[in-house]
Amino acid sequence: MVNGYAPISLREALELMAAHKLTPYAGGTDLMIEEKREDSFLFLHKIPELKQVSDDGEYIRFGAACTFTELLEHSLTPALLKEALSRIAAPAIRDEGTIGGNIANGSAKADSALIFFVADAQLKLAGAGGERLLPIKDFYLGRKRLDRRPDELLVEVLLPKKWLGSYYYQKIGARKALAISRLSFAGLLTIEDGKIAHCATAFGAVSDVIIRRADIDAMLIGKTPAEGKAAKAAYLAAFNEAIIPIRGRVSAEYRKTVCLNLLGDFLERFGI
């Protein structure tokens, strides 16, 4: 085809990526907003390897070209991810948009990426030099800057299963559908044997990159809920320092206040 390729295997796709300057086209729902087309497109919709979903015991593995709708309909997709996916735009966008595109577009507003952040997902990239696995947090280098070489494709998202059962999720948009996140928050918290076994939080659409501060969340891990309550003020204060919001469609002050409100509510929900 003119100005594009539609490979039918991952191998073919990687060879094309190595040989040409191409823009990977997953769902197109971000890419097509731009009027100008500089590069040819590499269409990913015919590559079966990028469409698979499996459970390897430790991770649920999602092919990067799975659409939001496909994952909403898939039995292996955890409830938290489904909740976030169901709030993305509207059916037509969910039908075409993919998790790989959502992540690799590099936006801190990406609703599926928030869930992969809070769950400390791993990303698998493949390129001329082979495959590599990296934590999603390391993939984002800054605003719209990603750790992806021009020949590389994001091929798989590995979502750790362990702590997903007990979650808190909020998205603030300007309306109930067709809403770009003005702020989003996800939290995971598990209490086992009377102690906080796991605590993870992530803040989307607040800063250039989704905020995930495992070091601060660690303040609560290993504590009883009562001890957690005692540490709450310090914990909130640490996030108050850590969250440096940017202004956009809403003010920085609004973003900060709501982040902290939701963080407090999240803890309260778990009796902390």
Partner: peptide
């Protein structure tokens, strides 16, 4: 601009032609 693409609703303004191949 909605159309039905491979059995699902799609905004045709957000679809590049290479995507409809096949």
């Amino acid at each position: 601009c909605s159309v039905i693409l491979d059995g699902r609703l799609a905004n045709s303004c957000m679809v590049a032609m290479g995507r409809v191949d096949g």
